[in-house]
C-alpha cells in the first residue's frame, strides 16, 4: 500500500484539535507549553465544554496562551491568576474555569494567591508548568530551580544557603483540604503525554462535578533557558528533576478509584 493511499480522511487517526487556533506558536522548538496547550484544547474539545470554559493566562512565556486555544480568556497580572479565577468562578459557578501558570507566576510572586485559592477549594483547575526557570525573562532562577542548577542569576548553581531550597508547591497544596485532586505529571514521552492528558481530563471532570480545586503540575523543560537541545533537555529533566519532583498522584479524593498505571 502506497503512502498516498493511506493519507485519506477515513484513515485519520491523529489530527489537530479544532480548538487549537491555526497559527504558529511563539514558543521555542521543543517547548513543553506547546504540548500542554494541545492537551488542553483536545480535552476541552472532547468533553464538549468550549462554551462554558474560561481560561486565565499568566505572565511568563505562556502569557499568549489566549492566542492558541479557541475559548474565552482573561489575562491576569503576574501571579494573580488564582484570584482572577476566583472572581470568575464565584460569580459564574456553572462555568469551567482554569488557570495556566508557570513556576515563577505560581510559586514565587503568586504564592499567596495559589495557596489561598486552593485552601478555599475554589472550584477550578490549576495547570502548573514547572520547568525550574524563568523562561521569558531569560533564564533566571525560579523558586523551583533545583539545587546546583545553573541559571543566569545562579551562575555557580543554586546554593540553598544563599537562595533557599526548591519549592515543592504541589506537595504544599496537597496538604490543603480545599484540593480534591493533586497530581504531578510530565510530557516528555508519548506515554507521559497520554497520561498527562488523562490527568487534565480528570481535573476538568472534578471541576464539572464541583469537587473543589484540582491541581495538575507538569514537570517541563525549558531547553532554551537550560541551554540544551530539546532531546537533551528531556533527558536532563528525567535524570535531575524527577528525583526531586517525583511523578504521580499526591492526592485523589475519589477513594477506591484505582490510580491509572500507564
Amino acid at each position: 500500500m502506497e503512502t498516498k493511499d493511506i493519507i485519506k480522511p477515513e484513515n485519520l487517526v491523529y489530527g489537530k484539535s479544532e480548538l487549537l487556533i491555526d497559527t504558529i506558536m511563539h514558543y521555542c522548538p521543543g517547548c513543553t507549553h506547546g504540548v500542554v496547550h494541545k492537551l488542553i484544547a483536545e480535552a476541552i474539545g472532547e468533553m464538549g465544554i468550549q462554551e462554558k470554559t474560561i481560561g486565565i493566562a499568566p505572565v511568563g512565556c505562556s502569557v499568549f496562551a489566549y492566542n492558541y486555544i479557541d475559548i474565552d480568556w482573561q489575562e491576569a497580572a503576574h501571579g494573580r491568576a488564582p484570584a482572577v479565577a476566583t472572581g470568575v468562578v464565584r460569580l459564574n459557578p456553572d462555568k469551567f474555569v482554569f488557570t495556566y501558570q508557570g513556576d515563577g507566576d505560581l510559586a514565587s510572586i503568586g504564592a499567596a494567591e495559589i495557596i489561598h485559592a486552593c485552601n478555599r477549594g475554589e472550584n477550578m483547575l490549576v495547570i502548573f508548568i514547572n520547568n525550574g526557570i524563568y523562561g521569558m525573562t531569560g533564564g533566571q532562577m525560579a523558586p523551583t530551580t533545583i539545587e546546583n542548577m545553573v541559571t543566569s542569576t545562579t551562575p555557580c548553581g543554586r546554593d540553598s544557603e544563599l537562595n533557599g531550597y526548591p519549592l515543592k508547591m504541589t506537595d504544599l497544596v496537597a496538604q490543603l483540604p480545599g484540593t480534591s485532586y493533586v497530581t504531578r505529571q510530565s510530557a516528555q514521552t508519548a506515554a507521559a503525554v497520554r497520561k498527562c492528558k488523562r490527568a487534565l481530563k480528570k481535573g476538568i471532570q472534578n471541576v464539572l462535578d464541583k469537587k473543589g480545586t484540582s491541581f495538575v503540575e507538569v514537570i517541563s523543560t525549558c531547553n532554551s533557558g537550560w541551554k540544551m537541545t530539546p532531546v537533551q533537555a528531556n533527558k536532563w529533566m528525567e535524570e535531575n528533576m524527577f528525583p526531586y519532583y517525583p511523578l504521580g498522584d499526591l492526592k485523589d479524593s475519589e477513594k477506591g478509584e484505582p490510580v491509572s498505571k500507564n
Partner: peptide, 26 residues
C-alpha cells in the same frame, strides 16, 4: 450577590478583575 473576604487587597482587586471581566457588576 456574592461576598468574599480575600487574602489581601492584591487578591481582592484581582477577583474584581476576574468577575468584571465576565461582565458582572462588582
Amino acid at each position: 450577590m456574592v461576598v468574599l473576604q480575600a487574602e489581601s487587597e492584591v487578591a481582592a482587586i484581582n477577583m474584581v478583575y476576574g468577575a468584571a471581566g465576565s461582565g458582572k457588576k462588582v
